[in-house]
Amino acid sequence: MASPTMTEPLTPPAAATPGRRRWHAPVFGRLLDALSGLGSLLIAAMMLLVCADVAARNLLSRPITGVTELVALGVVAVVFLQLPAALRHGRLSRAEIFIDGLRRRRPRAAALLQALLHACGFFFCAIVFAATLSPFAKSWTSGDFIGVEGVFTAPTWPVVGIVLVGSACTALQFALLALLEWDGAATTGGDA
């Protein structure tokens, strides 16, 4: 549970935008927010779908087939649609105690450390992206699905595709944050 501010949503914390030059291309930021918006719509859709299933099962004795499968796929999609924006808005959990202290005492060292940590984030997301390329190609070409033919089936490629897009965008956002900190370190006049 990253940021606890739930009463003032949509306010990016100061930590996400230090430095002088603005590396955040506004267009990219808006793209990430659009992805996250899609994820939010998906949550709403999941809520409606489950409620419809509950109603149909109890009132009409006719459950909606495939709800289990769709929710399972939906959870993965929601996470990867939301991931880049959550990073951008500083909502992924981390312990900031040490680095905050360092920032007060030695801002330049803190900026360099932060750049390194963001580079690690870039590296990890890049691995997810690169290693998901081949599963995506397979699921696309072979028409992979989950479920049972004759009962309910749902293709898996849209979700694997979302993992691909989400990991790529998160990697890019990490790269932007790392460059931003690097830039900040270069313009910070020595350690106080």
Partner: peptide
């Protein structure tokens, strides 16, 4: 909309950890 966006942020911060 605000609630949905906020729900998304909290969800991913939990589930990314689970993953």
């Amino acid at each position: 909309w605000q609630v949905l966006v906020e729900t998304g942020h909290v969800t991913v911060s939990i589930l990314f950890l689970v993953l």
